[in-house]
Design a protein around this nucleic acid. Structure first.
Length: 552
RNA sequence: CUGCCCGUAGCUCAACCGGAUAGAGCACCAGUUUUCUAAACUGGGGGUUACAGGUUCGAUUCCUGUCGGGCAGGCCA
């Protein structure tokens, strides 16, 4: 519909100016219903160039614009806006389009089958997933679903930091637990992990349990001095836990990349050598430094420590080079904002490799921290202190649907308050139930009707006239635009907000009109309308990874 | 001290990358059911968009400064 309007307007623009590109035409959706279905500020933009007042330009365009049976009225308004009002035929086109496309309604092909890789969660295997990882999982997975809906070939990926200092720390903590050293004992590792899960791992390690992890069996040796086995077992144990958390959260990954693998296949070494060869390094204080200041960082960073091991960002750079070499021209990393300082380092490292990787590659979506409130008290999340609200607990208490909704319904870069009591209370007005209820209501009406849903179609001559109907149709018509916009702006929260609005229109309509009426023509029209709304609600919920129940 | 994010109704948050009268939900007040699910609907009050300047036809949005909150600034990740 937008494209249609752009075409009409551009045919006039070509006549009265020398523009050869339709990109100056911006079609908006007005906020206020009396301003019509679409509007454009085109005349305000052209007024300077044509040296005429915006309203005069509007009059000229109005005079020359070709007629269309999808538009019933065009108005000049305000400072010189053009407002377009859709005809009832256009409304019927929208509804029939949704009825025809069904599960595909709302999708677009702007991605043109290009490859995109989205990395998210990527939690260290040093503890169970918490609510912050949940936010990452919800946002990352929804982004993946959005890009799929926009015609991209998506790879979902999880990166495990299963090497390095944090893992040594984990092994030390488990070892201390095996030796029955209490966490408040001075002999307990000072920066060790304190959670109860450490004791669980220790217990299973000592009783020589076997853990299944991504198709591999890892058996604990049970020997306290066997640091290697303890480390392997602990990592496998926690990866297994995290995998189960993610399954419970309906989040699947296509590829798991392991930090350790980049050491094993020699790629880390190769990256280091390339950086040295390209002249971006120097030695100081017994360490090897990367000149990240060459690429916009505010100070240089150590890349090889005095003990010979590498700092975390070298394997990170290696991993990202690997992504690049796998052919991903578009990569999005979803992570917590507390890691934002890695961005400049990873990008600097990639630039230093001199491989013609774009400066702003990869893209990042950073989500801000979450404040968890339970019983009117804030829960501090700290892995090391052991105070913890795990994602699993949250799913068990609140449910997967509600958890996903609340975690994705806010802009990633705003801090969010998650009130556990509010989210889990069943009798409360919960937006998730509100949306699902709208879907269930439609399903029930269609079921009571008992006809063949696939035959529902709107007659060209039918005219909807109630406010409730027109508002619902508008919501259905706008849905594909929301999907595209949410994809382009990396903003899945827009889907959540849209669905709440769309459900509200449906509920209003439901209360306003009866659907199963005597008049066959009216009945079919109304059922066609709510069935198209059903596809929108279901498809939108699917983008959020939330179920659309037939009844509640 | 430096960098990044944020500041919008009592609370939780939107606002289509500069547009028209800043919108929802919760909470509060008043109503709606002999009807396809009242987990719903209808109406009402509530705002100097933290503050002060600047840019222009027009600013919640862009720029500068101030105040306030969060996160970073490890040879941790």
């Amino acid at each position: 519909m937008k494209a249609h309007l752009t075409e009409l307007l551009f045919s006039v623009v070509k006549q009265i100016t020398d523009y050869t590109d339709s990109s100056i035409i911006i079609i908006d959706r007005p906020k206020i219903i009396s301003h019509g279905d679409f509007s454009t500020n085109l005349c305000l933009i052209l007024s300077k160039k044509l040296k005429k007042s915006p309203r005069d330009v509007a009059a000229i365009i109005l005079d020359k614009i070709p007629p269309s049976d999808l538009i019933t009225k065009i108005e000049i308004a305000g400072a010189g806006f053009l407002n377009f009002f859709l005809s009832s035929k256009a409304n019927n086109v929208i509804i029939n389009s949704a009825l025809n496309l069904k599960n595909d309604y709302g999708k677009n092909q702007t991605g043109n089958h290009q490859k995109i890789q989205i990395e998210f969660v990527s939690a260290n295997p040093t503890g169970p997933l918490h609510i912050g990882h949940g936010r990452g999982a919800a946002i990352g997975d929804c982004l993946a679903r959005l890009f799929e809906a926009s015609g991209w070939i998506v790879t979902r990926e999880f990166y495990y930091n299963d090497a390095g200092e944090q893992i040594n720390n984990l092994a030390r903590s488990v070892k201390a637990s095996c030796q029955n050293i209490p966490t408040d004992d001075p002999k307990f590792p000072s920066d060790g992990y304190h959670g109860e899960y450490i004791n669980e791992i220790a217990k299973d390690f000592l009783s020589m349990e076997t853990i299944e992890c991504q198709g591999e069996s890892i058996k604990a040796s049970g020997k306290i001095k066997d640091t290697k086995s303890m480390q392997e077992f602990s990592v496998a144990y926690l990866r297994n836990e995290q995998d189960q958390d993610l399954i419970a959260f309906r989040t699947k990954f296509d590829v798991y990349s392991l930090e350790s693998s980049f050491y094993e296949n020699g790629k880390v070494e190769k990256v280091v050598n390339t950086l040295i060869k390209e002249g971006h390094t120097y030695e100081k204080d017994g360490a090897l430094w990367l000149k990240t200041t060459n690429f916009g960082d505010d100070k240089d960073r150590v890349m090889q420590k005095t003990d010979g091991s590498y700092t975390y960002f070298i394997p990170d750079v290696t991993y990202h080079l690997d992504k690049w070499e796998r052919g991903f021209k578009k990569v999005i990393n979803e992570q917590g904002a507390d890691h934002h300082s890695t961005i400049s380092r990873v990008r600097a490292g990639l630039q230093g490799l001199n491989k013609n990787i774009p400066k702003d590659w990869p893209e990042y979506v950073l989500h801000q921290m979450i404040t968890v409130i339970k019983g009117n008290k804030e829960i501090k999340i700290s892995k090391r202190a052991g105070s913890y609200l795990t994602l699993r607990e949250l799913i068990n208490e609140v449910g997967c649907d509600a958890t996903r909704y609340f975690l994705v319904a806010r802009r990633p870069d705003s801090q969010l308050v998650f009130d556990v009591d509010l989210a889990k209370s069943q009798n409360n007005n919960n937006p998730v139930f509100y949306i699902q209820y709208a879907h269930a209501r439609i399903s029930k009406v269609l079921e009571q009707w008992g006809g063949d849903i696939s035959t529902l179609k709107l007659d060209d001559s039918f005219t909807f006239d109630s406010q409730a109907e027109l508002k619902l149709i508008k919501s259905i018509g706008i849905y594909p635009e929301i999907v595209l916009q949410a994809t382009n702006e990396l903003a899945p929260h827009q889907i959540a907000n849209f669905l709440k609005d769309c459900a509200a229109e449906l509920h209003s309509y439901y209360n306003d009109s009866k659907f199963l009426v005597e008049d066959e023509k009216i009945k079919i029209a109304r059922l066609s309308l709510i069935n198209s709304a059903k596809y929108v609600l279901r498809n939108g919920l699917h983008l959020l990874g939330i179920e659309a129940p037939q009844k509640m």
